[in-house]
């Protein structure tokens, strides 16, 4: 509670400093809108539905792309951790592609898929798959061998061993990988939305982009705040319960893991 109050006070002070800077009049309100202007924009955008609609569009793309990315990345990571052939082929590819900033996928996605939802999803999936795969691979490799050995002498083999021993043993690493994948998916999607105008849906990235086009700095800053807030909330909502479980059951402090 004390920490919560401290964080709250910090942000109030931050907003206060911002307000003071505006009041000095050194910067044009076009460049630096006041916190109040931003709040007014947020309120009106929430009222007329643009903000809610944009958040809905963005989250849908994000969740679908992320889910597909996980569905591909997790099994690939497990495979490359145990099959030398996959490690030497797809594993190397993943290492290379992971270093590619996800925004670099945008031109390719545009040419392949045009200005469609497909392009959006493609960018998000490419941003997610490789980092999830690499984190899963690393995780599965660092499982103490004694777990699998103990399980085998108790009669656990094959599918049973994978689902009851290897996967749970890799859980802390899987969650780290999923978290990292989430961060990458989020960044990729914002890049895609800012660069690609899609008629099928108007997301937060577009809102940000048009804020700049219209020189509406209150809109730009407001949307940035919303993006940060969603990132924070999603982190807590999606991974909070898992981290809590890891902390209670394994004694792992997830923030250090």
């Amino acid at each position: 509670m004390k920490r919560f109050v401290l964080a709250f006070l910090f942000f109030v002070a931050l907003a206060g400093a911002w307000q003071l800077m505006v009041q000095t009049g050194r910067w044009s309100p076009v460049l630096l809108p006041s916190p109040r202007d931003v709040a007014v924009y947020l309120w009106s955008a929430a009222q007329d539905g643009t903000l809610v609609a944009a958040i809905g569009v963005t989250l849908r793309r994000l969740l679908v792309g992320y889910a597909i990315g996980l569905a591909i990345g997790l099994p690939l990571g497990l495979l490359s951790s145990s099959v030398r052939f996959v490690e030497d082929t797809v594993g190397v590819l993943a290492l290379g592609l992971q270093t590619l900033p996800s925004v670099c996928w945008v031109p390719l996605a545009l040419i392949w898929f045009g200005q469609t939802e497909g392009a959006m999803l493609f960018v998000v999936i490419m941003g997610t798959v490789w980092s999830v795969m690499i984190a899963t691979d690393t995780g599965a490799r660092t499982i103490p061998r004694v777990y699998a050995r103990a399980a085998r002498t108790m009669g656990s083999e094959g599918f049973h061993k994978w689902t009851r021993v290897i996967l749970p043993a890799a859980l802390p690493h899987l969650i780290t990988g999923m978290k990292q994948g989430w961060a990458f998916a989020w960044r990729s999607l914002m890049a895609a939305e800012i660069y690609v105008t899609v008629l099928s849906g108007f997301g937060l990235g577009h809102l940000l982009h048009y804020g700049r086009e219209l020189n509406a700095m209150d809109q730009v800053i407001a949307v940035m705040l919303v993006i940060v807030a969603i990132g924070l909330l999603a982190d807590k909502a999606l991974f909070g319960p898992w981290e809590h479980f890891l902390h209670r059951r394994w004694g792992i402090n997830a923030r250090e893991a």
Binding site: P144, R149, A150, T153, M154, S156, V165, A169, G251
Partner: peptide, 28 residues
């Protein structure tokens, strides 16, 4: 090959940290 009729107890703790004490005994 390994099998449940010849169980091994290891030096380092080979208990599964994702299960409780009871869950570990139940595993076998």
């Amino acid at each position: 090959g390994p099998g449940r009729h010849r169980l091994v107890m290891f030096q380092e703790s080979a208990l599964f940290p994702w299960l409780t004490a009871f869950g570990n005994v139940m595993f076998g």
